[in-house]
């Protein structure tokens, strides 16, 4: 069973339906015990970083998530589910994240007026081959982004995908059992579904 963790209410239905379409047996849950029993976890999230970390605290989800991650359970983070893994975010902050991946979350500050924030729409992926989940996406594929902040890992080796918005930024990371993307596979049509299929099918680890 795959647990889709409901940290901070929003559009989780699309994630649930996309994972089902990708062949996954998933439940949306805010129950820490269900998270503890899951074979894999997906942590989606949109909106404000602070609201998300508050959701983790108020719903008693931080401890179960740390446990399953430490145990090696395959983790797929989407958007805030990526950002929250880092040490801190400068959004309304700085605010502390889970500190599982070294680095921080910073706002886009494009030099040109034509480059809008939020970075919203379909952008191209440059990826480093060799990731058991990330390889589902081909170099040059378009995926759907909607975000104003992006992650900056201390160790560039964790970055497995990049995109460009007034300069390259990290679009996906891999660290052991953690795989997380800034874009929305559940909104990226066929390309996104293929990534979810790969997460469902693969062992989810490197």
């Amino acid at each position: 069973m795959i647990a889709i963790v409901d940290v901070c209410s929003g559009n989780l239905r699309s994630v649930e339906k996309a994972v089902a379409a990708a062949g996954g047996d998933a439940v949306v849950t805010r129950d820490g015990e269900v998270v503890r029993k899951a074979d894999k976890v997906i942590v989606p999230g949109q909106g404000a970083f602070g609201a998300f970390t508050r959701g983790l605290a108020e719903r008693d989800l931080e401890a179960p998530l740390r446990e399953v991650i430490a145990r090696g359970t395959p983790y797929l983070g989407i958007c805030l589910g990526l950002q929250v893994l880092f040490d801190e975010s400068e959004e309304q902050g700085p605010q502390r994240g889970l500190g599982l991946v070294k680095g921080k979350v910073v706002r886009f500050r494009p030099a040109k007026h034509e480059l809008k924030v939020p970075h919203m729409g379909w952008n191209q992926i440059r990826r480093r081959a060799g990731d058991p989940v990330g390889d589902a996406i081909a170099d040059g594929d378009h995926v759907y982004f909607v975000h104003s902040f992006h992650v900056v890992p201390d160790d560039p080796a964790v970055t497995v995908m990049e995109s460009d918005h007034g300069g390259r930024f990290c679009a996906a990371i891999r660290q052991d059992n953690l795989f997380a993307v800034q874009f929305h596979p559940e909104k990226s049509q066929r390309v996104g579904l293929s990534l979810l299929e790969q997460f469902v099918r693969s062992s989810g680890r490197t």
């Binding site: 929003g10 949109q46 909106g47 404000a48 609201a51 939020p118 919203m120 909607v146 975000h147 104003s148």
Partner: peptide
Amino acid sequence: AERFGNQA
């Protein structure tokens, strides 16, 4: 926007 994020 505060509740759901500007992007929504």
